[in-house]
Nucleic acid binder design. Structure first.
Length: 578
DNA sequence: GCCGTTTTCGGCCCGACTGTTTTCAGTCG
């Protein structure tokens, strides 16, 4: 059992305790412990064996004992007892917007309802409205909420939701009553998926701005409308919140609603402990320093000044996850993050030799037009028959075509590469003779792999040790909101990349963003280099590079960490080749 | 349940909005 599974169980316990109506601080302690366990940089099993679990922040005597029991026996009595006590359906009911533990418990106690289906039925029978502290409107809202989770599952890929957020932002920008405006929340932090859209604006006429927002053509229904906040559901079924503040408050509100929640909690803690300041969406205040002992606002013209007042360098939104950014900002050790313009080469392009839509020439022309300096063709290998994989005979033809094009090109270079399948025994899907003919080789896992973590990890590590492997493509195979990552020990894979000088791909396809940014940070600590690749199957996919850059930024990468920020010759020199 | 160069007990981030109430609890971010 790994730390992720342990953390998931602790999270479940937290939720269960909430449903039971336990002390909220006790509940929080389980969530805290789960969160901290997820982010420790080592395996949890040795920690338990050496009795060092309590070194993890948020893990005290009681939780440490429970984890020890879980790791030693595979079971935790406390958890099992809670599960027996609470019907499973209650947890699903929590996903209904507006339904929290208290309401669910009340409905359970009063009506014996323990799942979403029964709840929906009870609403139709008008039995919820009759409960104390519920009414007609509550019942309607529950039905709306159930419809919402049924339809949307509640999360969206970054590229899709960002587009919608920008369309709202652009529509609002035309309003002269708006002084400053910014997208906030997880979209601004460049998370790989988001639940909803947050926009912050400043204005002297909040009500008019709110009216305007509620009346935008993108909006389907208005779910809340107050002086500082308007919540809507868009026609796309995405929820969007607009926060309207006074212009003086804008920097504080932008910081607050950008989050993450964990970053904000840490910032508030710092403000209070080190500076006796209070922080919320309306300002940063010196406690008791105003007239008559009131709190006094510390003026800040922008976010950078807020950080400065708290003794910190400016923290880019992507880094605000309370994953060490505050400590680094204090010491002036924040990285200078990579930017889109730093990327010089388009690596991992599928042409019409395999499953790409476009010839080598067409991709080349597009790359040149977009200002790139080099490109690497990387079609599928022969085993990938589903993708029209290239056999060794057609490979020769492709290489001839690339050589001919390179002769004509000036100031642009096409590299010969491949996305070669890692086979189930860890060998690569081309012969040595064929592998020799590439400028460099990207190895990647596709179908027909062992479904056991140990075997899968072993096969991939064997491929990384192959002298011809220069780069590992989409390391976990995840498809966001659609397919779970492979069962693979990614920590061991990262170690093997470090040991063998293999570069890891950050696959920039917005549905993949694989390697996950959390592991990008981890791998950087081990001096692994990255390559941001669009995995382009059509010309337009080259534009996905920007999502890969966002993921790299979120993982703390600088341009020095990313090999395709180098000029062509140095790029090639940075890769392990045989 | 966790935590502590003010604390081993008494805190634990904070404010808006909604719906049900007639002063507030629950939810959300």
């Amino acid at each position: 059992m790994d730390k992720k599974e342990v953390a998931a169980i602790l999270n479940d316990i937290g939720t269960a305790l909430e449903l039971k109506g336990e002390n909220p601080f006790k509940v929080r302690s389980y969530y805290n412990a789960a969160r901290n366990i997820e982010t420790i940089g080592e395996d949890i099993n040795p920690l338990a064996k050496e009795d060092r679990l309590r070194e993890i922040p948020g893990v005290g005597e009681s939780i440490a004992e429970k984890i020890k029991e879980l790791l030693a026996t595979g079971k935790m009595k406390y958890y099992e007892d809670l599960q027996k006590e609470l019907p499973e359906g209650l947890f699903e009911m929590l996903r209904i917007p507006g339904m929290g533990p208290k309401k669910i418990k009340a409905i359970w106690d009063e009506l014996g309802i323990t799942d979403v289906a029964a709840l929906e039925y009870a609403c139709h029978e008008n039995r919820i409205a009759a409960l104390p502290h519920f009414g007609e409107r509550s019942q309607e809202k529950i039905l709306e909420g159930i419809a919402f989770i049924k339809k949307a599952q509640g999360r969206y890929i970054s590229s899709e939701i960002r587009e919608q957020a920008e369309s709202l932002e652009n529509a609002l920008k035309k309003d002269k009553n708006i002084i400053r405006i910014s997208i906030a929340g997880s979209i601004r932090r460049r998370c790989e998926t988001s639940k909803d859209i947050d926009i912050v604006v400043s204005s002297k006429k909040p009500e008019e701005v709110g009216e305007k927002f509620a009346a935008l053509p993108q909006v389907a229904t208005v779910t809340a409308q107050g002086e500082t906040k308007v919540s809507v559901i868009l026609k796309s079924n995405v929820a969007a919140d607009l926060r309207i503040v006074d212009d003086r408050q804008f920097p504080y509100a932008l910081h607050h609603f950008t989050g993450s929640k964990e970053h904000n909690v840490a910032m508030r803690g710092r403000a209070e402990k080190k500076f006796s300041m209070k922080m919320n969406e309306y300002g940063l205040f010196a406690v008791g320093k105003g007239k008559g002992g009131e709190d006094k606002l510390i003026p800040c013209k922008d976010e950078a000044e807020i950080f400065q007042k708290l003794g910190l360098a400016y923290i880019e939104p992507e880094l605000r996850e309370n994953m060490g950014e505050i400590e680094a900002a204090e010491k002036g050790k924040l990285p200078k993050l990579i930017e889109e313009k730093d990327v010089r080469g388009v690596i991992h392009v599928h042409t019409d030799y395999s499953d790409g839509l476009g010839s080598i020439k067409e991709f080349t022309d597009a790359c040149i037009k977009m200002g790139y300096e080099y490109m690497a063709v990387a079609d599928h290998s022969a085993t990938a028959t589903y993708a029209n994989g290239v056999d060794e005979k057609r490979l020769k033809k492709q290489h001839g075509e690339i050589d001919a094009l390179n002769k004509k090109l000036k100031g642009f270079k096409i590299f010969k590469s491949t996305e070669v399948d890692i086979l189930s025994d860890g060998s690569l899907d081309y012969s040595k003779d064929a592998l020799k003919t590439f400028d460099f080789v990207i190895a990647a896992v596709h179908a027909r792999m062992p479904n056991k973590e140990l075997e899968m990890t072993k096969a991939v590590i064997k491929a990384l040790e192959n002298p011809y492997t220069s780069m590992l493509g989409h390391p976990t195979g995840r498809l966001l909101l659609a397919r779970e990552p492979f069962k693979i020990n990614i920590e061991k894979v990262i170690d093997a990349c470090a040991a063998n000088g293999v570069v890891i791909e950050i696959n920039a396809n917005p549905q993949r963003l694989d390697l996950d940014w959390r592991y990008v940070k981890r791998a950087l600590e081990k001096d692994v280099k990255f390559c941001i690749c669009p995995d382009a199957h059509r010309i337009n996919d080259i534009n996905d590079i920007k999502y890969g850059v966002a993921a790299a930024r979120k993982g703390w990468a600088t341009k020095a960490d990313v090999v395709n920020c180098l000029p062509a010759a140095k790029f090639l020199a940075a890769l392990k080749r045989n």
